[in-house]
Design a protein around this nucleic acid. Structure first.
Lengths: 249, 249
DNA sequence: GGCATTTAATTGTCTGGCAATTGTTTTTCC
DNA sequence: GGAAAAACAATTGCCAGACAATTAAATGCC
């Protein structure tokens, strides 16, 4: 076995793992009710506090939800796309910031993944998707927009491209890559010139998708990637400097 | 605000969120020590049990680790790629099974994402990566292999392709898509004929990568996708039947 | 039958305590 | 003086018991 778990980890962790295994294995289905805390305490032969700690662990992973009152209790939670997406974004953000990932590495991953969506997006995007893209482009063009708001709209634009592929699994998998970039992109100061350039590229991209021209969209994305990388160039040095300062402390 | 959180959710959830926000915002850095449970209890004006439940929530998300003894306590945990990958896989698996995602949808997402890696893999894969690929191909060719083991090796092969792109962020993001497929693929029975076909395609793929021929690799992946889809065709009906049976209960 | 009240089950929170762990400090002994 | 042993202190892990809050069901009343 990879990890023995016996007698070295928390009781609450072991209990949580036991229940979580049951859920993963399909022994417990969505909306099934778990035994009450008192029953679980007896089943596992631990105190109620320990059971509660285990249940909180599961709740933190969106595996269960709890309801109070008679006939309440802990219920297996059907993991929604939104919940999964939120957790994915949190984890990706954390991974990027805590490991001081280089801007170019994150950028490469993000654009590679987005490129994977383009053929599907070009084939399937509908009027609603295009409207969403145009709306964000319009917002990006307004001059009285903070750098942060511009960046947020940029992320929204790219999310819209991913969603237009019409595959929810794809949207989920890419949410982390697209949205976790935001903190990194926020460190860029967008001049009027660079904004205009980006808006133009976004417009070209939307046009290409509307024409269902995947090859053109791909080419534009490549240009956008190069330009983004260029804008973020300074961040590599900045990161290195931060690290140097901290180690000097 | 999106969610008020005040006076409707658990105290432990609010406290966990408060601490987790501090970590996400960078106020708490990796290996920083949190106040002791007793201190936190006083700070937040709650009992120690409530603080403990909050800390267990954070531990479940790999945000902190705890150590016992004097000078022990809760420490901000540097989220490792492995931790993140594990959680990503769990969540993806859960998402796929609990939402009864159609095999073709999951398959499409998986191959689209893998396709995104191919140019990078072709450009960068080294001898070690190729050896890993060949090793899995060799395993898949041995006739005395259970369907499950064959499937596990298939997943390992595709993970190796992703890893050979040499971008850890990409590897992380794709781990969910690749590994969460395994439970679905496990429902396929692999005949000797289909195994031979898959091994041949895998070999072609490895050869193409060795030649640094991204276009050829892409074409082979398309064939593999079509074939996988064909093998999994029955699962769509199977799923529908399962659902029908359950609703009849 | 419909509405108000009571009841029972369950989670949420608190208090207080003891055991286990572990780095530090002090003591003991050679 | 130095090394081993013992005591110490801080901290988490776990437990028992209590009470409050909530909520669906059961009951009673009209």
């Amino acid at each position: 076995m990879k990890s023995d778990m016996t007698k070295k980890t928390d009781l609450s962790a072991r209990i949580a793992k036991s229940i979580s295994d049951s859920i993963l294995a399909g022994d417990l289905l969505a909306d099934d009710r778990l035994p009450s805390e008192a029953e679980l305490a007896e089943d596992f032969d631990v105190s109620r506090s320990t059971v509660r700690e285990a249940l909180k662990r599961l709740a933190a992973q969106s595996l269960i939800r709890t309801e109070r009152g008679a006939f309440g209790g802990a219920f297996v939670r059907q993991l929604s796309y939104d919940d999964a997406r939120r957790q994915n974004i949190t984890m990706s953000t954390l991974l990027l910031t805590m490991n001081e990932v280089r801007f170019d590495v994150a950028c490469e991953a993000r654009f590679a993944l987005e490129r994977a969506c383009l053929p599907l997006s070009a084939a399937r995007c509908g009027p609603k998707d295009l409207a969403r893209l145009r709306k964000e482009i319009g917002r990006q063009a307004s001059p009285d927009l903070s750098d942060e708001a511009f960046c947020a709209s940029d992320v929204a634009f790219h999310r819209a491209i991913v969603d237009s592929a019409g595959n929810p699994i794809l949207s989920y998998q890419l949410s982390g890559a697209v949205e976790a970039m935001q903190p990194l992109m926020n460190m860029i100061t967008y001049t009027a010139r660079s904004r205009a350039r980006i808006v133009a590229l976004h417009t070209d991209l939307a046009d290409a998708l509307e024409r269902r021209d995947a090859a053109a969209a791909d080419a534009i994305l490549t240009v956008l990637q190069t330009y983004t990388l260029q804008l973020g160039e300074g961040l590599l040095a900045h990161r290195a400097q931060m690290r140097a300062e901290r180690s000097a402390t």
